[in-house]
Nucleic acid binder design. Structure first.
Lengths: 337, 337
DNA sequence: AATGTTTGATTTAACGATTAACCATCGTGA
DNA sequence: TCACGATGGTTAATCGTTAAATCAAACATT
């Protein structure tokens, strides 16, 4: 491995000069600097990050703590964080907290032990992450708005709700996966707001809630809004098993725009997080904190993007033909099998 | 931050002694060692990984290069690798090659630049990873068996095929996503073997292949075997859109046992990778290579586990009631809607 | 001509942990 | 009593990089 010392002795100069030439910091004649850069690249010189970290106290590595990598949304966040980090010359060390709060603390300790400069954390459900003396940024949980970056879940729900409201739905079932999740509650709150005051909504949860769906439709519900795409897929199964077709008999929406949303039939109307923007924001906030700059303006929630597909349609009327403002260009699926 | 020097001067001993006491390497009286450990933990001492890395030349960090984190299987591998690494006191630095071969090389260079001790790589499709002077292990692509750890895709296909063969399927459609993927080809090869010589199979690919499914069923196919769960979901959509029910009219299988497999209805019969074992193996191989030990015996492919659910059933007969060896305890779904 | 100032490079000392080499001290066997 | 081997510890060098302090010319200023 080529080192500064190597280059220096090869060229008969001091290591300091080499360091200066390569970093452009001190005072080196352009002529010599050129010669040094040349030789360095010929030798394939790569500065030792360990040595640099030791000297400067900065490792150039960020820690990422995730509750559960099997949640299909997180990898997308991780991927975008990794891209954003690379663009800033930083590396990302992952740690999996496996949902467990204790393990989450342990993971944090591990990371700081490895000398990360800062930490990005996606905390498990409501668990507020511990306050540490390391710069941190929290994703997707509204704890402290000054170090949190999050999608506008509520606004997203509102968009979806408004869409269905416009279609004419007034009797809507909200399907959640986990009562304890603040994010899911936010999403539901937004949906209700978007639907407007004249709509009647009711929330159901989990496997039990899914089974109740056909009954609720029989009682007049015309739409099911799930707080995740996976849940929507489950709902779709329960509904079609009961002989109800989507969107003919009942409209269905998801959340997050996972790959499966387009693999279903009908393709799922859902709402997408701008994961790229989230990752960017998170890294901006974090790098500022690492630089010790006073906190910038609190970050506002990042808007979500409505993705209209084929699973939403105006409610079937007892009386027949329906006129609508044509959000879709498809043929009327009401009569479809 | 507490350092060795700090502890040493607090206790009036030399840093060497503190180092020895903490690592248990040199000769220190048990009495003094105890006192040192005590003080160290009181101060919350954490050795500086940078300093240690500089001195020993080992960073304790592994690099992980993945082609595309949005593929739902990879995160599970990543998660298990992260767990396995943690158990061995190692960290994992991620890098996303985004499918691009050029970026893959760049990611590798980045990682070695950061001083990783070894690299785990899941190469993009057929791209053979470049030979570098860093210890490496390759996952899921059969390049060189001596540094490759992979699930037994072919054996998995064989298991699935055998299952369907036993049920009586003789006319089977194989559905793939990408012709270029060796893994998918392996899977298909296995399926064909498992079904046995008397079965007739035909392979179709991608979106185009999915559209052809209903026609093929009309021509006598009784079963669709997809090379991934996501593909199976798509197939299910196309089939049910055409009025064909699963498993009544046609059986369906997936691959990988993703979360969506249980969210579908019927739940998908599929085959699961033992990601935990894969991760373990990969790390074992890699740590051996890092230690410079001569290569251990080549690793054999890791067996997959058949997951029987409700999407497979004996083929419908022109003549009626069917007797079967009851792989399922469900009621006959042939008559179901 | 004596005194600054700029320019280009060198010394030197650190960062924190590890480790080979060295040095006391004490007990033991010859 | 003397040399010897444990035992318990210290010194000092080192890993590769950085940065402050220093130094020696060359050049400009009065």
């Amino acid at each position: 491995m080529a080192s500064l010392k190597q280059i220096a002795s090869d060229l008969g100069v001091s290591t300091a000069t080499v360091s200066n030439a390569l970093s452009g910091k001190g005072r080196v004649s352009e002529e010599l600097a050129e010669k040094i850069r040349d030789h360095a690249s010929r030798l394939g010189y790569r500065p030792s990050s360990a040595a640099r970290a030791l000297k400067t106290g900065q490792s150039g590595i960020l820690g990422l703590v995730m509750p559960d990598l099997t949640n299909p949304l997180f990898p997308r966040i991780a991927q975008n964080l990794s891209i954003a980090a690379e663009a800033r010359g930083l590396g990302i060390l992952i740690a999996d907290s496996r949902g467990d709060a204790a393990r989450q603390d342990e993971a944090l300790a591990q990371l700081v032990g490895r000398g990360v400069d800062g930490i990005i954390i996606v905390p498990r459900l409501g668990t507020a992450p511990p306050q540490m003396d390391v710069p941190m940024v929290v994703i997707n949980t509204a704890s402290d708005p000054r170090n949190t970056v999050a999608a506008d879940h509520r606004g997203g729900g509102r968009q979806l709700g408004a869409h269905l409201g416009e279609l004419g739905h007034r009797n809507v079932v909200l399907l959640g996966g986990n009562r304890a999740s603040e994010v899911q509650q936010d999403r539901m709150r937004g949906m209700t707001e978007g639907l407007g005051p004249e709509a009647h909504t009711c929330a159901v949860w989990g496997e039990e809630g899914m089974s109740a769906l056909p009954g609720l439709v029989a009682e007049g519900a015309t739409c099911v809004m799930a707080t995740s795409d996976l849940l929507a897929l489950g709902a779709h199964s329960h509904l079609s098993r009961a002989g109800l077709s989507v969107p003919g008999d009942v409209s269905l929406t998801g959340f997050d725009d996972l790959p499966l949303a387009t693999a279903m039939h009908p393709e799922l109307t859902t709402i997408a997080q701008d994961v790229e923007a989230i990752a960017d924001q998170a890294l901006d906030v974090l790098t500022l904190r690492i630089a010790g700059r006073p906190d910038p303006a609190p970050v506002s929630a990042i808007p979500m993007r409505l993705v209209l597909r084929q699973s939403t349609w105006p409610p079937r009327r007892r009386d027949l033909s329906v006129t609508l403002s044509s959000h879709h260009s498809e043929t009327d699926p009401t009569g479809a099998k």
